[in-house]
Nucleic acid binder design. Structure first.
Length: 615
RNA sequence: GCGCCCGUAGCUCAACCGGAUAGAGCACCGGAUUUCUAAUCCGGAUGUUGCAGGUUCGAGUCCUGCCGGGCGCGCCA
């Protein structure tokens, strides 16, 4: 293991100017049908020198899309339209040239030019049957791509301060982050999930002081509680639980003596600072630290439990304290110093963030000698890269958008491309109950915790609702709908499809109509109803949807897809009885539904929602 | 004041590097069950994509300005 400084002197920092790119929208063999179309187009272009040049910087795969309208076939390419400009030719003429040069494939039944120059491809029924077969073969691996060796992704999310329980806003970060992690993994990336614990700095002192006061209170010493302190009931709980062995209860007079008032808001900070000083003074540094460390570990463990119950786990809980203790912050500052990227002003040490695109320069060491949060951030993100992760994703609350530029600036100053840091901002959550907005405030103690929300609506509805909307949209979380067991509730609508299918298979067993899978597979051409064809087509899109959702970090894409898929299923189910007398048709339909069940279960798994056998 | 995000049907929201007629759910009205789970299905309509320009063969999507909402702008974390 080389040390940070050794790396610095060996010049590693300057050798990283090429941004790592997540391979975008490449068509893989996991999407056989789309791949077939893309390959045909690609080959045709290769044989057309006058077009090949213009097409060279065009990713042909990306021009191939599913059609929205069945009349346009199954896939369409707008490649001719894309090439119209650089070649200065009529797009319909280009399309004609391409179509004439297209090879044939037995899975494609018809190719036509439509509209301004789209090339539409109609796939054969056999193509969809083959896809259904691979769904059944792959099972829970369907839609998952082969493992990619690089880039190795570090996904940081939630990272809520350990000063109290997670609230409903953190829940959205949790559900979104977990779903994005699952999506990336499904598309083959190696993802390291990390929670950064802000367990250093003044807020920990405030937490410690808050607990200390509750402990004194429980022992008969009443002190005006700081308005800037943490007033939630959980602070009392912690005060009652922590090990106070070795701590000597101080005199009430000693605690109260010399405390400033906190009449106006301007005094709040001074008052809580005075209490922190008192705590250190009267309990000793070690004594106060004993309270502080236990308090934060109690809360951190509570958060970890809460998340685990929510189905959200991490590979690593990264302590900010450990950054300081291991010297990584000092090392980072040393690197900046050696590079001439620090300067002194007004007694503080500054980092010239404006040189790296930030709005203003930032302080890293205050005049009082304390390192800022930003100094930790530089060291932390630098450390992420040093640990071998070459693509960083931070999922942050939208109120943190101001930090993005400076953290990126910090990374660049440390020698890593800023583009390798991606930040996804998640907008706020508003809870509605009975049509009224529920107010939240951590400090006042009147907040809705994630735990309470989960108890009220259940994990499945919570996970689902949190990712149902785009992360850059405010989320209105309607508790009445989330808890309703009715057709208002999309999560049940999807789960119900899964349960319904499971029920059909149970029923088949009861009736001794055992599913002959092989027979079903060889009779797929019996699936001629429009609803069944729609289902076949919808299912075959799943791998493309997963890739699209992963690429865009957009779990809601998967949510919408699942609802559409399941809608097709319910239509089909309603229109056609499965367990009929015709064994060939029956086995074929069971094959169809077995595949639907697989796709639904796989999709829900990515979202972190259960797929029940019965409801 | 400056910066970032958002503005799409009555409501909540989709819309795949700009692509074909902007789509769902809810709400509302009417219908379907002697049948494998009715938490289901079938039918019925709704748009100046905030406004005004611009780029383009093509704009909800890109650019400029304005209006409205959210967030941020500390030697706090």
């Amino acid at each position: 293991m080389t040390s940070i400084r050794a790396n610095f002197f060996s010049g590693v920092y300057t050798d990283t100017n090429n941004p790592v790119e997540l391979p975008p929208r490449q068509t893989t063999p996991e999407h056989p049908m789309k791949h077939i179309v893309a390959k045909l187009v690609n080959d045709a272009l290769a044989g057309l020198p006058e077009l090949a040049e213009a097409a060279a910087d065009l990713a042909v795969e990306t021009t191939v899309e599913r059609t929205r309208d069945a009349r346009h076939g199954d896939f369409a390419s707008n490649v001719a339209l894309q090439l119209a400009k650089p070649t200065r030719k009529n797009p319909r003429d280009i399309a004609t040239r391409i179509v004439d040069a297209l090879g044939t494939d037995e899975q494609i039944t018809k190719i036509e030019i439509a509209g301004p120059g789209f090339i539409n491809f109609h796939m054969s029924a056999a193509a969809f049957h083959a896809e259904l077969g691979s769904i059944l073969d792959a099972g829970n691996a369907y839609g998952r791509q082969a493992k990619k060796e690089s880039p190795k992704i570090l996904l940081e999310f939630i990272s809520a301060n350990p000063t109290g329980p997670l609230h409903v806003g953190h829940g959205r970060l949790a559900a979104f982050g977990a779903a994005v992690g699952n999506l990336l993994e499904a598309t083959g990336y190696q993802v390291h999930r990390e929670y950064y614990v802000n367990d250093a700095g003044r807020q920990m002192d405030i937490l410690g002081a808050s607990v200390w006061l509750r402990w004194l209170e429980a022992n008969g010493i009443s002190v005006p509680f700081p308005k800037a302190g943490y007033r939630g009931e959980y602070i009392r709980d912690i005060a009652g639980e922590i090990d106070t062995g070795g701590l000597v209860l101080p005199n009430a007079d000693d605690v109260l003596q010399g405390l400033p008032d906190q009449e106006s808001e301007d005094d709040w900070d001074a008052y809580v600072d005075a209490l922190i000083a008192k705590a250190s003074d009267l309990q000793g540094e070690d004594g106060f630290d004993q309270i502080r460390q236990q308090s934060l570990e109690s809360i951190r463990a509570e958060i970890e439990d809460d998340l685990a119950d929510f189905g959200v786990t991490f590979d690593q809980w990264y302590s900010e304290q450990s950054l300081a203790k291991s010297g990584r912050i000092d090392d980072a500052l040393t690197v900046l110093e050696e590079r001439g990227l620090l300067y002194k002003k007004d007694g503080a040490t500054w980092f010239p963030a404006t040189d790296f695109g930030d709005e203003k320069d930032r302080v890293v060491i205050r005049a009082n000698g304390a390192k800022t949060y930003f100094a930790s951030d530089i060291a932390y993100h630098f450390d992420k890269r040093e640990r071998g992760f070459d693509y960083l994703i931070d999922i942050l609350g939208a109120d943190h958008h101001g930090y993005v530029a400076r953290v990126r600036a910090g990374l660049e100053a440390m020698g890593y491309p800023g583009d390798d840091l991606e930040v996804e901002l998640v907008q706020f959550v508003s809870l509605y109950r009975g049509g009224k907005k529920v107010a939240m405030s951590t400090r006042s103690g009147q907040f809705d915790t994630l735990r309470k929300l989960r108890a009220e609506v259940g994990n499945d509805a919570a996970r689902f609702y949190y990712v149902m909307r785009s992360n850059d949209q405010h989320l209105e979380f309607d508790l009445d709908i989330a808890t309703s067991q009715s057709n208002d509730n999309p999560v049940f609508y999807i789960q119900y499809a899964h349960a319904r299918i499971a029920s059909v298979f149970r029923k088949a067993d009861e009736l001794d109509l055992y599913w002959d899978q092989d027979n079903g597979r060889t009779n797929l051409d019996k699936l001629v109803a429009p609803q069944e064809k729609a289902l076949l087509s919808a299912m075959s899109r799943y791998p493309e949807i997963v890739e699209l959702a992963a690429k865009n970090r957009a779990p809601q894409t998967l949510v919408h897809y699942l609802r559409d898929l399941v809608s097709d299923f319910h239509s089909s189910y309603n229109a056609h009885k499965v367990l009929g007398d015709d064994a060939n048709l029956r086995d074929a339909r069971l094959a169809l539904y077995a595949a639907v069940r697989i796709v639904v279960a796989n999709g829900l798994a990515i979202l972190g929602v259960s797929a029940p056998e019965e409801m």
